[in-house]
Design a binder for these strands. Structure first.
Ligand code: FES
Ligand code: FES
Lengths: 140, 140
DNA sequence: TTTTATGTTTAGTAAATTAGTCGGGTTTTT
DNA sequence: AAAAACCCGACTAATTTACTAAACATAAAA
């Protein structure tokens, strides 16, 4: 039930991009240094995020990365899904796909995992980058 | 954000024990066969569950394992904590321990993970084995 | 009392995943 | 042209996961 380092790094880096949103592109090295992440590893993470259209890149000197849209339009769930795959506590209840498991129907555990998955996605899809940077306190 | 196979096996096996609760101890091989789990691996899982006092064992012929208390007294969260450790999406917000991370205070991501952890524990600590076996449908 | 059915425990291991590193690119600005 | 930046594929070390092996301990039944 843990996020991998990749997912955590991704979220932290995206928060930095959100803070820097109005100032234009930000070089990856600056982000990596600030967040203490290997810049080469962060490159891989940003590659995935760019392919998913969450960020865009500006090449050349004075280039860097910038959010692809406003911070309030990007939810934590969007980031997590790109870096960790579909959200589900167990494979039987993967988002999107119905009926993965042959035991569905008489399975007594499925209900719990579905409920858990739904609560998790509720939280992650409710909070945007804007929410994270604008309030210190996420009440709840 | 996935449960390991160990956690899933543990929950499934505990459900079987709950179904069998009034019939006395149940041999591990029977459970393993029924749930398609390696019986030697299940032994290790049951060892942890026994040490955590969720089940008790009866040795010798006609022995086996039985829930240590009534099915409604055992929550899914109890099982998951034993087999997967403290519930937390990231190490910074481990249950129980305050202040693990030096960045606490100015950390913008912490709030999200705390909220997520709380929702997860709410679900897992709300549902008991009795709930799982008595109703096919866990509404919610 | 012998046999058999069970649980107990430690150690080892193969496969998969994770978390990177390496080393070269290409593109754009200065 | 040079520097600053992104782009990308391949490789690797460390860790975790999911078991397997093997011997041992205990209790009930025959
Ligand atoms: S094990 Fe797949 S639905 Fe329950
Ligand atoms: S990284 Fe530890 S509290 Fe945020």
């Amino acid at each position: 039930m843990k996020l991998s380092a990749k997912g955590q790094y991704g979220v932290r880096a995206m928060v930095v991009l959100a803070l820097n949103y109005r100032a234009g592109p930000m070089p990856i090295k600056e982000i990596a240094a600030r967040e203490n992440i290997s810049s080469q590893y962060l490159e891989q993470i940003f590659l995935e995020l760019r392919r998913a259209d969450l960020i865009s890149s500006v090449r050349g000197a004075r280039g860097g990365y910038i959010l692809a849209r406003d911070p309030q339009e990007i939810k934590i769930g969007d980031i997590v899904r790109v870096l960790e795959g579909p959200i589900a506590p167990v494979d039987c209840v993967l988002e999107g796909s119905e009926e993965v498991c042959e035991r569905t129907g008489d399975c007594l555990t499925r209900g719990v995992w579905e409920k858990l998955r739904d609560r998790i996605t509720e939280v992650l899809d409710d909070i945007s980058l804007e929410d994270m940077i604008s309030t210190r306190k996420v009440s709840g």
